[in-house]
Design a protein around this nucleic acid. Structure first.
Lengths: 203, 203
DNA sequence: CTTTTTTACTTTACACTGTTAAGTAATATA
DNA sequence: TATATTACTTAACAGTGTAAAGTAAAAAAG
């Protein structure tokens, strides 16, 4: 039965088209300012068609967030385990900034936007988020085993590092770096990561 | 002319009432989910009356953000200059977390929400923001003069510290700390600040 | 005092939003 | 050929921010 298969393929493609278009519009104008009608117009379908593929606007958000977490995990998860723990940690910081720089819209959906978060995340997002964070805590634990971060709880160390990179990235994404008008923002972020690495290395 | 004075007083009071009610509702339900009609209903005036006092919803946002920056500066600006620079820095971190904990809604308006930021901030907000940040850079510079943070640019050091506290606070406000389910979130934040202080002290 | 103007507010209205329910045309099944 | 399903659209509802027009009371002007 090739016809039903083709139809299913077409349905999947429309779903993907909706998702891709939503992602693009969310990136360009933000979540709140993108309306279902905007998305519908862009894909040349009626607004309510989207509701045949996604329960509501929130579910679009969650689907995209999940896609983001998948991408994120693929960034975080291919750090070579052959590196020394501290080098892995450095690499993780670099990769985190890289992800945020490559996919600011996804980053915003995943870690900043608060609006549609009233209901809980999808199971898969949660799982991927936990696994990504697991990579950080594993590396931190290895660093501790090697004598770093003496007398510190791994959770505290991990949270501190994560807070820093998240804060730096958030400032940029939320457009709150105008204070550093004359400075190149990307250099500032990279140099602050270097400084952080420098602090961590000596401990 | 006592009557015109009373009227002016009453106008100012209504303005304040609008602002206070908006602040309360933004805190309770968030900026986007609070409608002008909600605010109007709460103060028992017609929705359009608000527009006689504020140009639009954005201006309400900016007025509140400005109020936030005033509060914020009062937190940041009464750090004793008699303390050693590194102790001032510690105090600043503490005070930053305290502000975010005392006024999460203001914090969100000031540093996280992106939505109504298309037009520029008010001059006063900007000025207070710069002055607050000036406090940080001044302290960092003093630390450097005392031999800390060798070979580091004060901007980079300041940005790194600010990124960290902002990141920690953002996670909490944006409700992204579910990963640390079993841990007390406030302790985690405080301990991570202690760890940061520990790292900075040794440098 | 009476008439005009100003003040402070309300009512109405418009174009938008997310979303549900009902309708429709093409296709697949009986 | 008749019925049922699929995939979509149209119409509609209650909500949004906000501009324009209307109104009743107070103030100013004559």
């Amino acid at each position: 039965m090739g016809i039903t298969e083709r139809k299913e393929r077409e349905k999947k493609e429309l779903r993907k088209l909706i998702l891709a278009t939503a992602a693009r519009l969310f990136l360009e104008q933000g979540y709140e300012k993108t309306s279902m009608r905007n998305i519908a117009e862009a894909i040349e379908y009626s607004p309510t068609t989207i509701y045949l593929y996604f329960k509501d606007k929130n579910e679009l958000f969650y689907a995209l967030s999940e896609e983001g977490f998948r991408k994120f995990f693929s960034y975080v998860n291919n750090i070579s385990e052959e590196l020394a723990p501290m080098d892995q940690l450095k690499e993780l910081g670099k990769v985190y900034l890289q992800f945020a720089s490559d996919h600011p819209a996804y980053y915003e959906l995943m870690f900043i936007l608060k609006e549609p978060m009233e209901s809980e995340q999808t199971a898969e997002s949660w799982d991927l988020g936990m696994k990504s964070h697991g990579v950080l805590t594993t590396i931190v634990n290895q660093c501790i085993k090697e004598g770093h971060f003496k007398d510190q709880s791994p959770d505290v160390v991990a949270f501190m590092i994560w807070s820093f990179v998240h804060g730096a990235v958030s400032f940029k994404i939320c457009d709150r770096m105008k204070m550093y008008d004359n400075l190149n923002h990307d250099y500032l972020i990279n140099d602050s990561l270097k400084f952080m690495n420098h602090l961590l290395e000596k401990n």
